[in-house]
């Protein structure tokens, strides 16, 4: 789904960022900012239903990067984790749906930290693999994931509405023989 756009001018960041796991009770406070941050990079917006689809079901796989002092959302990652059935044997597959950082805070490893937190949470829940799509021209995003261990499994022709193609990136968290398709509840 949505990727991360390339960086621009940097802003001053006085201290350590706060990273927070999302939960449903935080919707009122943060959902408008989450939507705003992600929609910025999209030509066509997702309806609120899409956000709730993820956040209500997998809030624990969503992490926010917040300004140390102000109530300001700087980065966000939204994921899901489900048993993937389309081929045998089934796998418990994590999916990174959206990742965004505020343009003035790029190149500081915020997105990498968010991805790591999401993967760690998935591992804790017994995930077998993690997949995502990223736009073919989004080199920074591809580098980020590849540094963590993802590889490109296939290219998807004209995957996005704007006509550009995507790569499917895959990270196995276990040997294939050890994949059960079931996680820790």
């Amino acid at each position: 789904m949505a990727g991360e756009a390339e960086g621009s001018k940097a802003a001053e960041l006085p201290a350590e960022l706060r990273y927070m796991q999302y939960e449903h009770a935080l919707e009122k406070q943060y959902l408008p900012a989450i939507r705003a941050l992600i929609s910025k990079d999209l030509s066509e917006p997702y309806s609120i239903y899409v956000y709730r689809y993820f956040l209500y079901q997998w809030g624990d796989l969503c992490f926010m990067a917040l300004h140390p002092e102000k109530p300001l959302l700087i980065g966000i990652i939204i994921c899901k984790l489900e048993t993937h059935q389309s081929h045998s044997p089934p796998t418990l597959r994590g999916y990174i749906a959206m990742l965004a950082t505020s343009s003035s805070y790029r190149n500081r490893g915020i997105a990498t930290t968010l991805v790591r937190k999401a993967i760690d949470a998935m591992i804790e829940r017994g995930a077998d693999e993690v997949v995502l799509e990223t736009e073919e021209n989004n080199i920074p995003a591809m580098k980020l994931y590849e540094r963590l261990g993802f590889i490109r499994s296939k290219k998807l022709h004209r995957y996005y509405l704007n006509g550009s193609s995507a790569y499917r990136l895959v990270l196995h968290l276990k040997r294939t023989v050890e994949m059960t398709g079931e996680g820790v509840v």
Binding site: E146, L148, G149, F150, S153, V170, L171, H172, L173
Partner: peptide
């Protein structure tokens, strides 16, 4: 090669060679 803290060579080989497995 990038650091790849979440992966090892065998697991990546399995992803890469999946069509031939």
């Amino acid at each position: 090669a990038p650091p790849r803290p979440y992966s090892d060579d065998t697991m990546r080989y399995e992803v890469r060679m999946k069509p031939f497995s």
